[in-house]
Design a protein around this nucleic acid. Structure first.
Lengths: 208, 208
DNA sequence: GAATCCATAATTATCTATAAAATGAAACGA
DNA sequence: TCGTTTCATTTTATAGATAATTATGGATTC
């Protein structure tokens, strides 16, 4: 296996690493991202770092004020709720589009991801499994832009999860996921969509 | 009045101009964007040009293949339909959120925009008025990310409109807009949402 | 038709100018 | 005398220009 280094650019690599740090909370909201520090760390110049910043900005993970630098985007309760609402309607749409293309093998994979999530022993494992579950069910919609937008919104949810439960993860079974799969297995798409939409909205700010 | 040039960066300015050219069709789908040509035109170096590219990429207006340059994103029928579907559910959501905050003065402004659209004599004027109409009604949702996402999706619709009707614009009255305003004036939010969602889906590929 | 070379363009490094922040000194008031 | 405010100076970081490097696509030759 060859190094995938030349496959994508340094800017992409930097933006992925920074995105991960922001999502997991390793980089705190509001903290400054200094281009030459990051350039030093990745052993490059500031040019690709700046390009990485532009992508993070577009993903809503960073905020840049001209001539005043870039900081990690802070996420208010309102912003988390907004993202959850958006994701709710978009995932509903995606599932309706994906439903005709769902196969049993996909649903088996989704079930595996669901179990991985239920038995996860830390936030990171849970988050990965959760994303995989949703992605598996929605990918057959074959709508790349819809999926990409959902992924970007999902990051807000992940950030919230890490910030809230990151330190001490308490494993718990996600009944909604079970319910969604049950409905889909029976071909009850509308019911599955209803549960999914409610489920996604709940992920944001839970018990208030 | 001072030049607002220092307010935002050169990269922003470039990305705005390029976005406009792509939307209006001045830059054709698939055509290559060569960084040093554009740098020459704007009398800058290619560094801010590359940053502008990153934003265009995030907006779905350009596609970049690493080491092979950037081209104007092509938009297939499927992509236009996908964007229309996404916009449909998102605008529905936005209108539901905005409805409680709508005032008669906002609706008067929206009516003015609607009339401007109905009487527009070219695609550009119509497009501006159309965007203004939608934006006026949705902005009171006060959900910045939702609005930004809708704007980005709207660009696909605009591109489609320019590509299809750009050369010879035939003015026609948009009954949906009238209907939506009527419903909102009567406080019939759900009906307004239904019409809006249908309306947005129709904007994409019309008569098939 | 395959391999090599060259031209072109993308990517990244280095260097420079300029704006913002920080430091500190002086002046003023309590 | 202590503290606060204001202004100038210095420091630091961003934004951009220029320069160097590296990959890619096409042409040319074998």
């Amino acid at each position: 296996m060859m190094t995938a280094a030349t496959e994508d650019t340094i800017a992409n690599r930097i933006s992925r690493v920074l995105a991960d740090r922001i999502i997991t909370g390793a980089l705190e909201p509001g903290s400054k991202l200094r281009q030459d520090h990051i350039a030093d760390e990745f052993d490059t110049s500031h040019v690709p770092v700046r390009e990485a910043f532009r992508r993070l900005e577009a993903q809503g993970l960073a905020i840049s004020e001209s001539r005043r630098g870039v900081r990690v985007a802070s996420f208010s309760r309102a912003a988390v709720e907004e993202a959850a609402l958006m994701r709710s309607v978009l995932e509903g749409l995606a599932l309706r589009q994906a439903a005709p293309n769902l196969t049993t093998s996909i649903m088996d994979e989704a079930m595996a991801a669901m179990i991985a999530g239920d038995t996860a022993r830390d936030a990171r494992t849970w988050d990965e499994a959760n994303r995989r579950f949703h992605h598996l069910l929605l990918a057959p919609s074959k709508m790349p832009r819809l999926l990409a937008t959902i992924d970007d919104l999902q990051m807000v949810g992940s950030r919230y999860a890490f910030a809230t439960y990151g330190a001490v993860w308490i494993p718990r079974i996600d009944l909604d996921h079970h319910l969604i799969l049950d409905h889909l297995r029976k071909g009850e798409v509308s019911q599955a969509v209803v549960v999914l939409e409610r489920h996604v909205q709940r992920i944001g700010p839970i018990q208030r």
